[in-house]
Amino acid sequence: MEAVPPPQPLIDIDSHGFWNALADGRFAMQRCSTCRLFQHPPAERCNACGSTVAYEELSGGGEIFSFIVVRHPTVPGYLDDLPYVVALVELDDQPGLRIPTRLAGAEPTDVSIGQRVQIALVDLAGGNHTVAVFELAE
């Protein structure tokens, strides 16, 4: 048992839709109404053209762009949970659109760059939030 839970998101007006979607079981990011680019982290308007944005569900598939094996106790909530793999996942929905994520259930030796991954939603301990982790695709 962890005495201290993992960090909780400090949600703001721009990120509200991201966390709300996860709570509803959907993995979504902001997409521009005009140029149709996805963007992350979120902002009030499209970074590229200044148009309005809306959260849109993503496919949930991606590829490992890079990864690390966390071996030193660093982040509260994960201090006794070593080692674990964090992968930087490039999402299928747009080249260069990435998100760092724990690779659930993966042994460090099973992981390599370029592997396919698929989203899995899990509850975040210590609060009422859902987070998107990824797991190696079959």
């Binding site: 949600i11 982040v75 760092p100 939030h129």
Partner: peptide, 12 residues
């Protein structure tokens, strides 16, 4: 908060 809100809960 900020960009860290998406990453810190993942232990990163």
């Amino acid at each position: 908060g900020g960009e860290g809100q998406f990453n810190a809960p993942q232990g990163y």
